[in-house]
Amino acid sequence: MGVMSELWKGLRVTGRIGLRSLVGRGIVTTEYPKEFRTKPQRFHGRHVLNRYPDGMEKCIGCELCAGACPAQCIYVRGADNAPDDPNSPGERFGYVYEINMLRCIFCALCVEACPTEAITMTHLFEMSVTSREEAIYTKEELLMRPDGTVPHPRPDDPYADLSELEVADGWVRATAPSGSAAYEGVKMWQDTAGPASWDPEPDQETRDA
């Protein structure tokens, strides 16, 4: 008798939840390829190399990102700008810029290290590849186009939401050279052709409430 009553107790919970999910209430599953989870504002996704509003590249080829990278996945080589046709303001620009996405641990130390806020992160995470060569993103894939859109190696991927590339990672706001720790209600980085609309971040108490 004791067994039956325990069984009834347990099955009642199962039945209740089952019936509730039949009418579409209390379902927690996200149907991934069809719907996406809302990501936290500071989600670390794929990198992007930014441009200034006039189309100049922000990267100056200083290799500080490569130095800061704990996984040593960034390879940068700078070159001198041609005086009459410069790629970036200043003397030098990133001539070669490669990130091995399979080594990257998405820690955003490169974003913190960058003195010109050239490299930032987006919210895109769908980067599965079938060979290790494909995972090395060159400047072609990383550098945004002059119109502010971001290229992707597989634009026809049916499972990736490429609009995630338009969302920039909020982490830079607190760590960027122009940023401040008091980010609350402050819009940083207005002066960018970056892929982002930078809404002010709420303070922590509001966010956690």
């Binding site: 996200t30 991934y32 390829p33 996406f36 989870r37 996405m101 399979l102 990257c104 641990i105 998405f106 820690c107 995470f125 769908e126 980067m127 599965s128 590849v129 079938t130 060979s131 290790r132 995972a135 049916p158 499972y159 990736a160």
Partner: peptide
């Protein structure tokens, strides 16, 4: 067959890898 980048890749990243493999 499929490499999934990330450290660690979230569940959705892994599912993207699985779907990529299924399609292949």
């Amino acid at each position: 067959d499929v490499y999934v980048p990330g450290c660690p890749p979230g569940p959705q990243s892994l599912m993207h890898g699985i779907l990529t493999l299924q399609r292949m």
